[in-house]
Amino acid sequence: MQHISVTVDGMEYNAEVEPRTLLVHWLRNGIGKVGTVVGCDTSNCGACTVLLDGRSVKSCSVLAVQANGSEVTTIQGLADGNEWHPVQTAFKECHGLQCGYCTPGMVLAAVDLLGENPNPSEAEIREGLEGNLCRCTGYHNIVKSVAYAAELMGGGSK
């Protein structure tokens, strides 16, 4: 077992984990952050995407021990109190989700995308979200949501 200290959604957690434990399993089973979900076992779907020190990662592709000393933001910590993150607002306004299972990962991938490129074109949005699969929306409204989020955040889609 190895000791880790990770700040998740603003709270510091100290834990002993098996070295093989994936970050997503520790988030879900270790500290009950079940808003982050698992959709596959080959790192293809991106449902488990979180922000690790501000950048999006698939938390199935990171070991919990690798997150030691880092800050993790999950979908449960994205809003600022009652204030929704603009990406969350945009997904609701543009009907960018249906079953909602890919949504935590999709939203956090979009947050990272907009951090990197506040003014993305449709093609850039599509490219930026390529690692996150959705089976419900055909991506149409997800792309619209991200473009709208860019607008809300002061960038705006090309």
Partner: peptide
């Protein structure tokens, strides 16, 4: 439905 789904309160 969306408020829950967008905040991981699922």
């Amino acid at each position: 439905e969306d408020a829950r789904l967008l905040h991981g309160q699922t």
